[in-house]
Design a protein around this nucleic acid. Sequence first.
RNA 1: GGCAGGUUGCCCGAGUGGCCAAAGGGAGCGGACUGUAAAUCCGUCGGCUUAGCCUACGAAGGUUCGAAUCCUUCACCUGCCA
Length: 439
Amino acid sequence: MRELLTETTARRSLDLSDLPPAEQAALIAARSQQLQPSADALAARIVSAAEKGRPFVAKFGIDPTGAEVHLGHSVPMQILSRFQRMGHDVVFIVGDMTAKIGDPSGRSDDRPALTDEDIEHNLATYREQVSPFFDFDRAHFRRNGDWLRKITLPEIIGITAQIPVSMSLQREDFRKRLDAGQGLSLAELMYSIVMALDSVEINCDLEVGGIDQFLNMQMCRKVMEISGQVPELVVATSLIEGTDGTGAKMSKSKGNYVPLTAAPGEIFGKIMSVPDRLVEPYFRALSEWLDAELAVAAERVAAGTLHPMDLKKVLAGEVTAAIHGVDAAMKARDEFAARFSRRTFAEVDDLPTVADLGVSVTEAVKALGFAASNGDVRRVAQQNGLRLVVEADGEQEQLSLTADDARAVLADLVKDRLDGKTGDYFLKVGRKLARIRAD
RNA sequence: GGCAGGUUGCCCGAGUGGCCAAAGGGAGCGGACUGUAAAUCCGUCGGCUUAGCCUACGAAGGUUCGAAUCCUUCACCUGCCA
């Protein structure tokens, strides 16, 4: 396991600059949901850039509004990382101007006015979180406000005159909103055009984005053409589904995401809670595993020689290792096993701890963040989810607490119920677990 | 500018004077079963000092014994017409 993780994690920094253009294109194609117009075109463009002695430029737009970054965001970053390692230029377009419109794909309602400091701060946070997946020191950053502010009305008219409204209205979400009478602002309709001006500005060779940006990126191609440039190629990455298995894409608003700032144990655990059917897509989007390796794994699972859960453990380890390193991943794996397989809580290191035994159980649970309100605690207790656990020599005993017990002072409860029993004490609230410091 | 319609709990959505802390669905949470998987079943799902009280149906006022429901004003959204 350790060897496997060490090997696959190392691939993240593998130099790909010797890869022939056709193989570069094939690798990118295998990891994107859409590659437009084709893998051959990508190879050709790489060749032609090299012949002209200029860098091949890959563009990626980032939103400077400071949304928390999660695993879903790392997917395009890994594609970009491959481009970078292939020896190409990666340019990040910081959308300080486009943020004022608000991406209609996301439909965020608040469009906060961002100060320069905000943007700097958000950018720094972003870089820090995503840095396991990408080497920012070797990338360029450009703010689109720098050129968009200078665009004149005649220029805009000149471009928009050549774009049929029907093109913008191809988007299903726009049509739906119009049909549903929800309205659509002209600014939103303009969003993709504004974004396209970025591509023109940097004379972009290829743009990377989520599949939700596909039509926006089509517009980039169109506008580049209007402007007399060769249209960029488009790589659309798949959107990974959230950990909840409802089929919705991973997003903060759904709460089904894995934050990149999460502790190793949390990342490992969240991946383990993902439905089995997502294991392969996750591998494809989040790891450097090769198609051939994935095929072997799939075969073995189908043949029954590899337990789906074991494969998922490898995935969880892979992702954890990418962010926190192999050692942390191995530790997370061991603790996961201790906690959920062997159920020996004492071996788990990174548990939250109840330090103050002088308060009621309810207060302690709230302080841990395991419940939002007293009613919450009461409910869990009534449903047999609130338990006091004592563990000694790998043996453990769980005592269910009633709603009345929850009102009692923790220290008294521990004394009354567990008196005479030695060992480690834990408090279990549903699936969540905390250590109780024994005095 | 004129006319019409809308704004309900995390989300969708019912509700046109008392039986409404508000139907139904989804998400969430807990339990059983498991592999913290899927599927299934059961329960729960505003807050509190919980047989009671408080806060809530865009905002503020008003009518009424009583308002999510009626009236007035305001805000926002939408449609049709100009």
